[in-house]
Design a protein around this nucleic acid. Structure first.
Lengths: 179, 179
DNA sequence: CGCTTAAAGCAAATTCTTTGTGTTAAGGTC
DNA sequence: GACCTTAACACAAAGAATTTGCTTTAAGCG
């Protein structure tokens, strides 16, 4: 029991999880998200449907699990040498990734999960990393950046006809940094 | 064909719609949203499941339809006599309504619908009404208010562990109005 | 190496969704 | 107001997804 969670992360379990996640990612590329079913995923992953139901509960939880894994960034935010530059670079990339069709779906799926709060945590972590690079500079706290930069970006993608314009994004960043 | 949509809004159709909407609202109060099913709604509403499937397609669409109807405000934003007061009153009420359990679910359901863009339209309409009351005053445009007030409110509710604090909401409003 | 048990497989039972066909009642016409 | 046309609903059977009881496999431990 010297392992992370109270589960069995060893060989088979891990293989099944990876196989299922991979099947989900593949299917989401091939077809519309609304048409993906659990039996279909199971077949692709070489697993029994009941395995998926027993482990994840239902489709929305599985999709959220996969979406959260994809949301977790694989690299540090770009370091441009200035606070403004770093925030801009991060925000532009985030806007770009999430306003695509698959990006929107990731946001949707995460949001339907039981722990969508992790989303703000991940974003906050990224932004905090940037802020920590400039310790001797007057700057807003993470919360403010989340509220004024990340929030409108995500909100527009999910609830508006058109995503945030890059110009408006820049203006919001200026306002946030000047407070 | 002098009617709104290309449908038949007359007697029976309207009755069924109201009956189904009402059944959904009732069930959402009695039990967890994840446990509500179409056959259950149909039984409560006194209609056949196939009626619901034929008319709405599936559960998520129906829930979104009900959620959108609930989101549509029944009254004008409060008129306090000042721009700041009106925006504050609106934002506080919105934060309050949407951070409750049913409120969160409404946001989720709308967001999963095919026309979540209507959400920004409704919010924008409310805010525009407020702005129009003060024509001779320097003020931000609706977009800015949506981005700096509504967006963080909704984002926090959906993706963060805790909703926006009222103090931070007030600060964001100050910043938005001072630009 | 063998023991214990979490996690997967399998299959039957249940529940939900789809679909073909017949019936009801809006909305329009005379 | 009686008659037509057809959108919207009811019913029932077929199809698909989900749940559940039981069996088998293999991870982790002594």
């Amino acid at each position: 029991m010297a392992i992370k969670e109270g589960l069995r992360p060893g060989g088979r379990s891990a293989r099944v999880q990876e196989s299922v996640h991979s099947a989900v990612r593949d299917l989401l590329e091939e077809q519309d998200r609304a048409t993906v079913t659990v039996p279909q995923i199971a077949a692709r992953a070489g697993v029994t449907p009941s395995t998926i139901y027993r482990r994840w509960g239902d489709l929305s939880v599985l999709l959220a699990d996969v979406a959260l894994a994809r949301m977790r960034p694989e690299s540090e935010p770009a370091n441009t040498g200035s606070l403004r530059g770093d925030v801009r670079a991060w925000a532009e990339q985030y806007l770009d990734e999430m306003s695509s069709e698959p990006g929107r779906n990731i946001l949707r799926d995460v949001q339907c999960s039981t722990t969508p709060a992790l989303c703000a945590t991940i974003i906050g972590g990224q932004l905090q990393t940037i802020l920590d690079r400039y310790p001797d500079q007057p700057k807003p706290n993470v919360d403010r950046l989340i509220n004024m930069v990340a929030a409108p970006t995500v909100f527009r993608i999910l609830f508006s006809a058109a995503p945030l314009e890059v110009e408006e994004l820049h203006r919001l960043i200026e306002i946030a940094l000047s407070q």
